Computed example of a mutant assay.
Amino acid sequence: MKKRYFIVLVLCLSWIGISVAAGQTFRIFEKPILFNEERTQLSLEYLKNRHGIEKETATITPQMVVVHWTAVSTLESTFDVFNPVHLGGRPELTAASNLNVSAHFLVDRDGVIFRLLPDTTFARHTIGLNYMAIGIENIGGPDAPLTRAQLKANAELIRYLQKKYPITYVIGHHEYYAFQGTPLWKETDPDYITQKQDPGDRFMKRLRKRLRDLDVKSKPE
């Protein structure tokens, strides 16, 4: 009787999303942005014109995770920025493409994770590396430092992604310059670059401490 009760208890805990071994909950909520035929075509054009890659589908083979902050104060406002197909109001980026920026995941201040795009769908979020990188955006910015809950959520999400894909690199957006001049860097215009500070050295140092048992790199060798 006790054995049967234990089995039922474990099944119930598994069903509601509680990890018995880790003692924690990990859940991703679906909140898809618009990805219609026009966005697909613009993504294919970006892959060809900016990365020099011709594909039949707007997909990536993930090898990297890039961590960002939004510099937008709320989740819904950020969603409204990413959802349109066309990019507006950023001439330094529209000169390269009218494809809007986006990311695969969005993490709110309380650590709740939302998936905006399928993991292997192309997203424009990091110059030179979009073709291989999953983007994680965090609600926050210079005046709203990322929270402990977001730190925990990013670590859990990256562990989840590495179990699914051959993730070799985990970097902050401000660290992407290190890949220029390496075989991994694919940007057809050597002058196309933007200065980034997100999410900052402090957050990435704390994140890497949580991921130190994983075989991931912060820069090319």
Rank of each mutant, 00 (worst) to 15 (best):
V65K: 01
T70V: 11
A71C: 10
S73N: 13
L87R: 15
R90N: 06
P91Y: 11
S97W: 01
V101F: 12
H104E: 03
H104P: 01
F105G: 02
G111D: 05
V112E: 13
I113H: 03
F114V: 00
F114C: 00
F114A: 02
L117T: 06
L117W: 09
A123W: 00
A123R: 01
A123Y: 00
R124V: 04
H125T: 04
I127F: 07
Y131C: 05
Y131G: 03
M132W: 08
M132D: 04
A133M: 02
E137Y: 15
E137H: 12
P142F: 12
P142H: 11
D143R: 10
D143Y: 10
A144P: 00
P145V: 10
T147G: 00
R148F: 14
Q150G: 01
A153P: 04
A155F: 05
I158W: 00
Q162K: 15
Q162W: 04
K163M: 09
I167Q: 01
Y169H: 11
I171Y: 03
Y176R: 08
A178Y: 12
F179G: 01
L184E: 03
T188S: 14
T188H: 08
T188E: 12
Q195F: 14
Q195L: 12
K196H: 12
Q197N: 12
D198T: 12
D198F: 15
R202E: 15
